[in-house]
Simulated scan of single mutants.
Amino acid sequence: MTKLFLKIFTALISIITITLIVGYWFMQQLLIYPQQHVNLTSSTTITVARGNTAIGIVHKLEKQGLISDAWKFKYLVKIEPQWAQIKTGLYDVFPSDTLADVLQRINRGEEKSFALTLIEGKTIKEWLHTLSTTPQLSFSDDVFNQILIENGDDSGLPEGKFLPETYHYHAGDTAKAVLSRSYKMMQQDLQQAWQNRDADLRLKSPYELLIIASIIEKETSQATERNWVAAVFNNRLKKGMRLQTDPTVIYGMGERYKGNITRKDLREKTAFNTYRINGLPPTPIAAPSKASLFAAANPAKVDYLYFVSRNDGTHVFSTNLRDHNNAVNKYQRNQK
Rank of each mutant, 00 (worst) to 15 (best):
T314I: 13
H324T: 15
L237E: 11
K218V: 06
I55D: 12
L305R: 10
Q85N: 13
D142T: 09
T220C: 05
I86P: 14
V93A: 02
L305F: 04
P164L: 03
I212D: 09
P281A: 06
Y275N: 07
L118H: 09
R276N: 10
I16G: 08
D198R: 03
G254S: 08
L90A: 10
Y183G: 12
S214A: 14
A70M: 00
Q191M: 06
I119G: 02
F144A: 13
H324K: 12
I15R: 11
I277Y: 05
L31V: 14
D312T: 05
F5E: 11
G240C: 06
I212E: 10
M241T: 05
D246V: 07
K218H: 10
G152V: 09
T47W: 01
S138M: 02
T134G: 12
L131A: 14
K336F: 13
N329E: 14
A171I: 03
I15D: 11
A296I: 07
G152H: 11
K269Q: 13
S96T: 07
S180C: 01
A296G: 10
Q136M: 12
Y275H: 08
A177D: 09
N320G: 14
E110F: 02
Q195D: 14
L190R: 11
L131S: 14
Y207D: 15
Q332F: 02
D153I: 04
A54C: 06
G156T: 14
T166Y: 03
T41P: 00
I13W: 04
N196H: 12
Y306M: 05
K161Q: 13
K204R: 07
F317I: 11
G172D: 10
P95S: 08
Q35C: 01
R242H: 08
E126D: 15
S96C: 00
K78N: 13
L66P: 13
I149W: 04
Q64A: 07
Y183H: 05
L118I: 14
D303W: 01
L40F: 02
W25N: 15
L163D: 14
K112G: 11
